[in-house]
Structures are given as structure tokens and as C-alpha cells.
Amino acid sequence: MKQIKLKRILYSDTTWAFVLLLPNFLGFLIFLIIPMIISFGMSFVSWDLFGPVRWVGFDNYIELFLEDQVFRRVFWNTMYFTAVTVPIGIVLSLFLALAMDQKIIGIKFFRIAYFMPVISSMIAVAIVWQWIYNPEFGLLNYFLGLIGIEGPSWLSDVFWAMPAIIVVSIWQGLGFNMLLFLAGLQGISEVYYEAAEVDGAGWFEKFWNITIPLLAPTTFFVMVMAAIGAFQAFDAVYLMTAGGPARATSVLAHYLYQNAFQYFRMGYASALAYVLFFIVLIFTLIQLRRQRSWLL
């Protein structure tokens, strides 16, 4: 009787599904869930990695919201970055996907070309773009010079540094979003377009009344992912401007890094991390609600 039971367990798909999922789950637990719980606890303490851990209650959060001017600055910088990067990135990648959704020779080459930035090392990307932005020898100012515009020193100008970072971020994320849209586009049945053509619909009408609504689930997914990515932006900032000039490009993740690994204020950095977490959470919940009204 027992043997049969064991056999049943060994032959059960559920058992094997769990066993095979285990390594992934353990990794998730050890490297994500447990650190997340610990860092939540840490957001209520003051700790410099070495000294005693001092319980400070909500002091970190109070300092963040009421006292820290830099936090206010980086918060708005993050909002600015996200508010520009996400919509422009989505519109551009949708049009790119439409362009790449053609059955012409060599289309695969273009798809790969547009996807390249996604898999390129950010270090290399940052160095190339720094040269493009170089005020004296850079390509950008060279081309601007040809049409008689004297370009600013992009990365070191308080006003222009953020737009410069945004352009790089959009450019780098374009390929990934394009790929998602492409998959979405190819999932739309030709039947709808044919029917619309029979009814005499033009390109724009088809796009507006068929493509856009049927792409909504993809658009939603892209939007949520892009927004989460934008809120967490770090590498482009860290590598290209280090948050400067005068904190003009410092975003939440960068300020968090500075507090944790330059000022060694682990508790404060954890509080920042949770503020960032809740911003992303709230934003995603709003999106979820909107999605329901979209799709139904």
C-alpha cells in the first residue's frame, strides 16, 4: 500500500514540477525574498555596516519626506525621466514595430540591427554616446554645426544633461519594446484587416480601429515594464554623468546607491528603496485598473 503511494507520488507531474522549480524558487528566496524582508527591517534602523544597529523607528522616512532636499530633487528627476522616457519610447517602438512588420527581403537584418542596443554592454554604449555628445568633437554637435546651430555641452549642461540621458535610454530600450510589439502585431489575425478593406477602410482607419485595440494587451505590458524600468534607471546615469552636473541627472536609484555604498547609510538607503518600491507599486496598480477598463 505504501509502495503504491510512493509510486504515485514519484510518477506525479506535480511532484516533478515542484522539484524542477525548486532551484529557481530557492534562488528567488535567498537572493530576493529574504533580502527584501531584511531591507524592509533595515529601513527602520541606522547602520553604517560596522557600528551597532540603532533602531530609529520612522526617522529615516521622516528625514526623506520632510528634511532631505536632495530626495525631493531626485524624486522629480525620476518623474521627469519616466514621464518622458516611457511615452516617447512606446510610440517610437510601436512605429518601429510597424515598419519591421513587413514582408520584405532583409527585414531580419533590420530587426537585429534595432535589437542590438538591447544586448550591448551599457559600458560600451555609455562610452560611444559620451563621444557623440562631446561638445567639441562629438558627432551631434558636428551635425548641428552644419546647420548653423552651436550645440551645448550636452552632458555637463544643467538643462541638457537629463534630455541627453533620456535619449540614450529610449534608444537602448527601443529594440526590446519593438520585439514585444512585433509579436503582438503578428498575433493579430489578417481576417480583420481583410474585412476592413472590404468595407473600404484606409491605412489609418485600420491602424486606429484594429491594430491599436487588438494590441492593447501588449501595449499595457510594454507600458508597465517600461515604467518599472524607468523608475529604476541607474546605469546610464551612473556611467555617463554620475548624477551631475549639480545633481541634474541624479535619479532615485542613483541616490540610493550613493547612500548605501558611498555614504554607507544602509538604513536610509533601505528606506529609499522602499519608497521607490511603493512608487512602482502604486503606478502599476493604477495601470492595472486602467487595463481593465481598456480591455473590457
Binding site: S156, D157, V158, G244, P245, A246, R247, A248, Q258, Q262, Y263
Partner: peptide, 20 residues
């Protein structure tokens, strides 16, 4: 002993020299 103090100085001087 406060590295953040020097960062504040650099940030503010940046605003003066380059940010008007």
C-alpha cells in the same frame, strides 16, 4: 568624516559655476 558633505559642496558649486 562625512563624505556626503563634500558631495553637497561639489553639487552647489556646480550650480554656481554651470547653473547660474
Amino acid at each position: 568624516v562625512r563624505p556626503a558633505a563634500m558631495d553637497i559642496i561639489a553639487e552647489e558649486l556646480g550650480a554656481f559655476f554651470d547653473g547660474g
